[in-house]
Amino acid sequence: MLRSLYDWTMALSARKSASVWLAVIAFVESSVFLVPADVLFLPMALARPERAWRYALIATTFSVLGGIAGWWIGYFAFDAIAVPILEFWGKLDTFNELKSGITYETILLMLVTSGFAHLPPIKVVTILSGAVHVNIWLFIAAAVVTRGARFFLLAWLLRRHGESIRHFIEKRLGKLALIGAVVLIAVYCAYKMLMS
């Protein structure tokens, strides 16, 4: 099922309505959808590099709006909407583990790592942020910075290096972002140990 969703999302990049689909995918990725908007963003930016910044703005804006929707689901409709969504994607156990040991500082850390490196999945963190009542303005600021950093970095790389960087982005950028997220988590843990 995941592969067919991925293929379907990739096929959208060739349509005239690709910008609209990018907005839709970026929105739903942050609250209910499994396939990241990058899958649509990358081929679009490669096909029309002069529009890469525009596509990055669309992806960032609608990803943040989708994150707000996820926050709203977690805050106002956790049992009615969030639980079935998380069960459907097999993420309810992950969610419950995260929620049981969550502090305000760790939720901010997760907003950074999920927004930039999808660790943990962004939809889990947006719903969790609402469920634990993270301040909405702080949440929005973190989402704008992290999602914007991801999409605008991709736009810059694609405009600067074109098709030659695509393989690197698809195969290695995720791993590098993951390493960066792990380093950030390690720094945070070291800081907490030093302060206690």
Rank of each mutant, 00 (worst) to 15 (best):
I140Y: 04
A14P: 00
L40G: 10
W156P: 01
A131R: 11
T146W: 03
K91H: 08
F152A: 08
V24T: 09
F151M: 10
W156E: 11
R150Y: 06
P121E: 10
G70D: 11
E29D: 13
I179S: 10
S129Q: 07
A23P: 07
I165R: 05
S129R: 06
K16I: 02
V32H: 00
F88P: 00
R150I: 01
L2C: 00
L184P: 00
L119W: 05
E163D: 12
F151L: 07
I58Q: 11
S17Y: 06
L57N: 01
W89I: 15
G90W: 01
P36W: 03
H167R: 15
V83G: 07
I185L: 13
W71E: 08
S31G: 07
L92G: 04
R51Y: 11
L128V: 09
A142Q: 02
Y191D: 12
S13H: 02
L128P: 05
D38H: 01
F152I: 02
M10V: 14
I107C: 04
D7I: 09
W8I: 02
W8S: 12
W8T: 11
P120D: 06
L65D: 08
E87C: 08
A186F: 09
T126P: 01
R159V: 12
A59C: 09
F27C: 15
L153P: 05
G101V: 10
L111D: 09
T61S: 15
Y6H: 14
L138D: 01
W53Y: 11
V32D: 00
V24E: 07
S129D: 09
A117V: 08
F95P: 02
L173A: 12
G74A: 10
I58W: 09
L46I: 15
L158T: 14
